[in-house]
C-alpha cells in the first residue's frame, strides 16, 4: 500500500528520456502542464493525450508504474471531480434534492479530472526518468540567477537565497523517501504483530492508532538525519562554495531537439485552441493592409 507512491522513485532504464538534460525535462513538464490549461477543446485534449502516450512509450517505464502514482491522489481527484460535477451552474440534466448535475458541470468535471490525471502522469514521467540528483542539479542550475539577488538585513548581513542548500535538501529528501516508506511498512507490521489495528474505527480512533507508528518513525528519521549530517561532514561537505561537479550540466544536440519538440507541441496546441481567433485575424489581414496602404497614400 505505502510502497505504491511513485513520486520521487527513479525507474532505471535506457531511453532517450533518461538521457535528456534535466533542465529540458523540467521545462518540458512545465510547458506540458501549461498546455493542459491552454487546451479546452476535445482536439486539444486529444493532442495532449497523444503527446503523453508517446512520451510514456519513449520512457520505457512500464505503464503500471505510472498509474501507481495516481492511487495516492485518488481521494483528491474524486473530491475535485465531485465539486465540479455538483457545483457548476448550467442546464440541469439530473436532480436529487439539493444535488443537481448540469451539462456544464459534467463538462468541467471531466476536464478537471483529465487535467489532474495528466498532470500527475506528466510529472511522474519526469521523476521516473530523472534521478533525484539530476533533478536537483537541474533545479539548482535553473535557479542560479536567483543567487545574485539578496535581501539586505542590516549593514553587514545579507540574506541570499540559498539555492544550493535548497537543492541539497531536496535531493536528500528524495533519497530517503523510499527508505522511510519501507521503514513505515516495517513498523506498521511490527505493531500489527502486537495487535495494533490501523484500518477499523472512526477518524479519531484511526488518528490515535497512528501514534505507535509515527512516534518510532519520527525518532528514526531524526536518528538518520543526525547520522547523515555526520557522514556528510566526514566527507568534507561544507556547503556549495568551492564545490566542483561530477556531472556538470551541458546541453547536447538531443536536448535542443527536445526543446524544439516540446515547443512545437505547445505551439500546435495553442494554435488549435486559438485557431478560430487566428483564422479570423488572418482573414482580416487584407483589410488591415488596405488601411495601412491608404494611410501611407494619404501622405503622398
Amino acid at each position: 500500500m505505502i510502497r505504491d507512491i511513485t513520486l520521487g522513485q527513479y525507474y532505471p532504464a535506457k531511453s532517450i528520456l533518461h538521457e535528456l538534460d534535466p533542465r529540458v525535462k523540467l521545462a518540458a513538464t512545465m510547458i506540458f502542464v501549461i498546455s493542459l490549461f491552454v487546451a479546452r477543446s476535445p482536439v486539444g485534449y486529444g493532442l495532449a493525450t497523444i503527446f503523453l502516450v508517446l512520451v510514456i512509450r519513449m520512457s520505457k517505464v512500464p505503464f503500471r508504474f505510472m498509474t501507481k502514482g495516481l492511487k495516492s491522489i485518488i481521494m483528491l481527484l474524486m473530491i475535485t471531480v465531485a465539486f465540479n460535477l455538483f457545483l457548476v451552474d448550467g442546464n440541469t440534466l439530473w436532480r436529487l434534492g439539493f444535488l443537481r448535475i448540469t451539462d456544464k458541470g459534467v463538462q468541467t468535471a471531466v476536464m478537471v479530472g483529465i487535467r489532474l490525471i495528466y498532470l500527475i502522469l506528466g510529472s511522474s514521467v519526469m521523476t521516473l526518468t530523472t534521478t533525484p540528483n539530476d533533478l536537483t542539479d537541474g533545479l539548482e542550475k535553473a535557479m542560479e540567477p536567483l543567487k545574485k539577488f539578496y535581501i539586505p538585513l542590516g549593514p553587514l548581513k545579507k540574506f541570499r537565497i540559498p539555492v544550493h542548500d535548497m537543492a541539497m535538501i531536496m535531493s536528500i529528501a528524495l533519497r530517503f523517501i523510499p527508505i522511510l516508506l519501507e521503514e513505515t511498512d516495517k513498523i506498521m507490521k511490527a505493531q500489527m504483530a502486537r495487535g495494533a489495528d490501523f484500518e477499523s474505527g472512526n477518524l479519531i480512533q484511526k488518528a490515535k492508532a497512528m501514534v505507535p507508528l509515527l512516534a518510532p518513525l519520527f525518532l528514526s528519521a531524526f536518528r538518520r538525519a543526525m547520522d547523515l549530517a555526520l557522514a556528510m561532514e566526514a566527507r568534507c561537505y561544507r556547503g556549495g562554495e568551492g564545490r566542483t561537479k561530477m556531472k556538470p550540466l551541458k546541453y547536447e544536440s538531443r536536448d535542443r531537439t527536445a526543446y524544439g519538440v516540446i515547443l512545437g507541441y505547445f505551439l500546435i496546441v495553442t494554435a488549435i485552441e486559438r485557431g478560430v481567433q487566428i483564422y479570423g485575424w488572418i482573414v482580416a489581414l487584407p483589410g488591415r493592409w488596405m488601411a495601412v496602404y491608404q494611410w501611407i497614400l494619404s501622405f503622398l
Binding site: Y10, T131, P132, N133, S171, I172, L174, R175, I179, R223, R224, D227, L228, A231, M232, R235
Partner: peptide, 8 residues
C-alpha cells in the same frame, strides 16, 4: 543507509 548521499 545513513551515510550514502547519492541516489546512484
Amino acid at each position: 543507509d545513513n551515510q550514502i548521499i547519492g541516489t546512484v
